[in-house]
């Protein structure tokens, strides 16, 4: 029968082993694979400014991006290719709450420069290799 000492060794040994594997894989991901898959070389100043605007207004509090966030408003990972630049800018610069089918967005009333930065951010996100996400709908079902 398992003794308390053996149980402790299982806990400590397993934790250390799997932590090491996790750290090793994370190191590879962050230094080699992810910069390539996310086109890190295309992160311009405008993209970074766009990310700051994205975060400082908690856009993730309603939308998802890369599938992460809240489920109140549309997924925006591929919004650049789906809706196009001018649509996105119209929404961001609106003085009245944008409300498709009645669900209101906060009227951010962004300046043209800020809206351009957010568009640059979306355009960069749009180009990422996300292992097949978001999935393509099945055309036979529509």
């Amino acid at each position: 029968m398992l003794s308390k000492k053996q149980a402790k060794a299982f806990f400590l040994g397993g934790t250390i082993l799997f932590s090491m594997i996790f750290l090793g894989l994370s190191f590879e991901s962050v230094t080699i694979s992810m910069p390539e898959k996310t086109n890190a070389d295309q992160i311009t100043d405008a993209v970074v400014r766009g990310k700051v605007i994205w975060e400082s207004n908690n856009c993730m509090g309603c939308h998802t991006i890369l599938g992460e966030g809240a489920y109140y408003a549309p997924e925006l990972t591929r919004v650049y290719s789906r809706k196009g630049e001018s649509y996105i800018k119209t929404v961001l610069m609106a003085e009245q709450p944008w409300a498709p089918r009645g669900r209101k967005m906060v009227a951010y009333n962004l300046s043209e420069e800020d809206a351009n930065d957010v568009v640059a951010f979306f355009q960069w996100i749009d180009g990422m290799d996300l292992n097949g996400f978001p999935p393509e709908p099945d055309p036979s079902l529509k």
Binding site: L2, K4, A7, K8, F10, F11, G14, T15, F18, S19, I21, F22, L25, E28, S29, S33, M34, K37, T38, L66, G67, E68, M128, D129, L130, N131, G132, F133
Partner: peptide
């Protein structure tokens, strides 16, 4: 000990289920 051992055994690398579709490797 056994339970928290199992937790870490599965949970640490289980973090990978958040990495499927966010630009992390396959």
């Amino acid at each position: 000990y056994v339970i928290v051992g199992l937790t870490f055994l599965s949970g640490i690398l289980g973090t990978g289920h958040h990495y499927y579709y966010i630009g992390a490797p396959e």
